[in-house]
Amino acid sequence: MAKKESGGGGVALVAAVLVVLAGAGGAGGAALNSGAGGAGGAAPVESIGVRKWDAKRSARGGDVEGAVAHLGARITKQAVKQELDCHANSFGRVRDFFAHTPCTSLDRLLLAVGDGAGGEAVVSVAWVTFPGRRQARQFEDVVDVHGSGDVRPLSTTVLGMADIPFTAVHYWSETVDTTITIAESEPAGGTPDPELVDALAEVAAQLPRP
């Protein structure tokens, strides 16, 4: 990777992938539309670079739909998965790190995002938690190096999409206390604005661990 800046127990530790279709109407769709400032409201004049600060604020509060809406986009599908074994779900030097420094939990989220103009992107978020802050910072020093490997994002096939590899071109990470959040995004269809794809990773990295 290349950095730009800087529960439960027993059988419940491994949860099945849950896929949610978003935006099919009802309260969820209304929540997405209310923060986007798109059709039907005052047309936003700010660039994505400006609007992402409001998006980050929503993300830090755990409002993923509102965060994406601030960027003028909407979530169409999502999948979540909770596991314990970081070593089995990683590769490269990142996997080597987990061999001697196991994580205590791994939560992963995958989003399909539409820009309202035919463009689509996918966003991967992984929350990796360690026993202490020192291990989290040491891991940050490894995962943020380009070519060091990665925690494997959930496959886009779980969303009913073609397999889309994550390249770390659009990458961001944040470390808070003992958890490091790794976010990546990729174009998935049409011609989404590269600035939007980049902002999606930066904003998603602000989301708190679920």
Rank of each mutant, 00 (worst) to 15 (best):
H146Y: 15
Q206N: 14
A67L: 07
A199F: 07
S148M: 10
G61S: 15
T181K: 03
G189D: 13
G7M: 00
A205N: 03
V94K: 02
K52H: 11
V128N: 06
G119Q: 07
D198W: 01
L106F: 10
R57C: 09
V17A: 15
G35N: 08
P208Y: 12
Q138V: 01
D177K: 08
G61Y: 11
G35D: 07
C86M: 02
Q135M: 13
C86E: 03
N33A: 08
E65T: 11
D144Q: 13
A126Q: 10
E202Q: 15
V122E: 10
E46S: 13
T104A: 12
L106Q: 09
T76W: 00
R152D: 15
V158E: 14
R134G: 01
E83V: 06
G118Y: 13
K52F: 12
L200A: 05
G61K: 15
L200V: 04
G29I: 01
F98T: 08
K56I: 07
D144V: 10
F166M: 14
A88C: 02
N89Q: 14
T76N: 09
L71W: 12
G62I: 06
A39K: 05
D193I: 06
S124W: 09
A136M: 01
K56N: 08
Y171I: 01
F130G: 09
T157R: 09
A73K: 04
A99Q: 10
P102V: 08
L18H: 09
D115I: 00
W172Y: 13
K4N: 08
V94T: 05
T181H: 06
R93M: 13
P102K: 10
P192C: 05
N89A: 13
A73H: 07
F166D: 03
G10V: 02
V50P: 01
G10D: 11
V20H: 06
P210N: 02
F166A: 05
A67Q: 05
E65A: 15
D163V: 00
A15P: 04
A15K: 13
Q82G: 07
T178H: 14
Q138C: 02
E120S: 12
D163C: 04
R133V: 14
D150S: 15
R57Y: 13
L111H: 00
G92M: 03
A73V: 06
R95V: 05
S148W: 09
D144T: 15
E140A: 01
G119E: 11
A43S: 12
D198P: 02
W53I: 12
M1Q: 08
T181W: 00
A24D: 12
T156D: 08
A69C: 08
E5I: 03
D107E: 13
S124G: 14
G37E: 02
G8E: 14
H87I: 00
S185W: 02
A31F: 03
V143C: 01
V113Y: 00
D193P: 05
Y171G: 02
L154D: 07
G41I: 08
G119F: 08
D107F: 15
G26S: 03
N33L: 06
Q78D: 09
G26W: 05
I180G: 05
